Simulated scan of single mutants.
Amino acid sequence: MTFAAPPEEVFDYLADPRNRPAWQTSLRAVKMLDEDGPRVGQRWRDLTWAGVRPHMRITQLQRPTLWAETGSWFGVSADLTLRFEPEGAGTAVSVEMDVRGTGPWRWPAGLADRLADGAVAGDLRRAADLLGGSSAR
């Protein structure tokens, strides 16, 4: 996904959990557990429309090139990594996502992992539009 904004602007917007309900369709709200950030270790809870409330934490933060989070809810955990690279006057954002589960959560987590790419791509398109436009890549 290419954003029509510079890497610092895109990074700052996507790395701040408080902005996520505006661009992540599955979220109703975010409950911040740590207000000082964004920073490695910052924690929050996603409050989803489906009622899932994972505990989230920033695991990597190298402004403006790399941001990663991990989330867990019962027997499911997920890792998301975003990489930011200048592309012309904009920013190319690449995504790595891994969802896994244990016990009875293994099958639903596997399904979520297969569906995640499309959902994340749609959410990033929405974020890019909010920041002034995008072009799919």
Rank of each mutant, 00 (worst) to 15 (best):
Thr102Gly: 13
Ala92Phe: 01
Ser94Leu: 02
Val99Arg: 02
Ala22Asn: 10
Pro7Arg: 01
Ala78Ile: 00
Val52Asn: 02
Pro21Ala: 05
Glu87Arg: 13
Val10Ile: 12
Asn19Ile: 04
Val52Met: 12
Leu14Tyr: 00
Phe84Met: 06
Gly103Arg: 08
Ala29Asn: 15
Ala78Arg: 05
Gly103Trp: 07
Arg137Phe: 08
Met32Ser: 07
Trp49Asn: 13
Arg106Ser: 15
Pro108Val: 03
Met1Gly: 10
Gln60Tyr: 07
Ser134Asn: 09
Arg83Pro: 04
Thr81Gln: 12
Gly133Asn: 11
Ala127Phe: 03
Asp79Asn: 01
Pro7His: 03
Pro86Trp: 06
Val10Arg: 09
Ala5Asp: 07
Arg114Phe: 11
Gly101Ser: 04
Trp23Arg: 11
Glu85Ser: 11
Ala116Cys: 00
His55Cys: 03
Arg57Pro: 05
Met1Phe: 09
Leu131Pro: 07
Ala136Leu: 14
Gln60Glu: 15
Gly122Lys: 13
Thr91Gln: 00
Thr91Ser: 07
Arg53Cys: 07
Val76Lys: 04
Val52Asp: 10
Thr65Trp: 10
Ala50Pro: 07
Pro17Phe: 03
Ser77Arg: 12
Thr91Phe: 00
Lys31Val: 14
Pro21Met: 08
Asp12Cys: 01
Asp129Trp: 04
Leu66His: 05
Gly75Ile: 01
Glu35Ile: 07
Thr91Arg: 05
Thr81Leu: 11
Ala22Ser: 12
Ala119Gln: 12
Pro17Lys: 06
Ala89Phe: 03
Arg137Gly: 14
Leu82Ser: 04
Pro104Gln: 02
Val30Gln: 10
Ala109Ile: 00
Arg18Met: 04
Arg18Phe: 03
Gly90Ala: 09
Ser72Gln: 15
Asp34Arg: 06
Asp129Ser: 14
Arg28His: 04
Thr91Cys: 10
Leu124Phe: 01
Ala136Pro: 15
Leu14Glu: 00
Val52Pro: 01
Gly101Cys: 00
Thr102Ser: 13
Leu33Glu: 14
Thr59Glu: 15
Gly103Met: 00
Gly132Leu: 11
Thr48Val: 02
Ala29Leu: 11
Asp46Val: 07
Phe11Glu: 06
Glu69Thr: 10
Gly75Leu: 12
Ser135Asn: 08
Ser77Met: 00
Val95Ser: 08
Pro86Gln: 14
Val95Arg: 12
Asp12Gly: 01
Pro17Ala: 03
Gln62Leu: 08
Thr102His: 08
Leu111Ala: 14
Thr25Asn: 12
Pro86Leu: 03
Asp46Ile: 03
Arg126Phe: 00
Asp117Lys: 15
Val30Asn: 10
Gly41Asp: 02
Ala116Lys: 05
Phe74Ile: 12
Asp36Arg: 15
Asp79Ala: 09
Pro64Trp: 05
Arg137Asp: 14
Gln62Phe: 04
Arg53Thr: 11
Ser94Pro: 09
Gly103Val: 05
Gly75Asn: 09
Ala89Thr: 14
Asp34His: 01
Trp67Asn: 00
Pro7Cys: 04
Leu111Ile: 15
Thr65Gln: 15
Val99Phe: 07
Gly51Phe: 04
Arg39Pro: 06
Ala22His: 10
Thr102Cys: 02
Trp105Pro: 01
Tyr13Arg: 09
Arg83Val: 06
Leu80Trp: 06
Ala78Val: 12
Arg18Glu: 13
Val120Pro: 11
Pro54Val: 02
Asp98Glu: 13
Arg63Val: 05
Leu130Asp: 05
Ala29Ser: 15
Ser72Leu: 10
Gln24Phe: 04
Glu9Trp: 01
Glu9Pro: 00
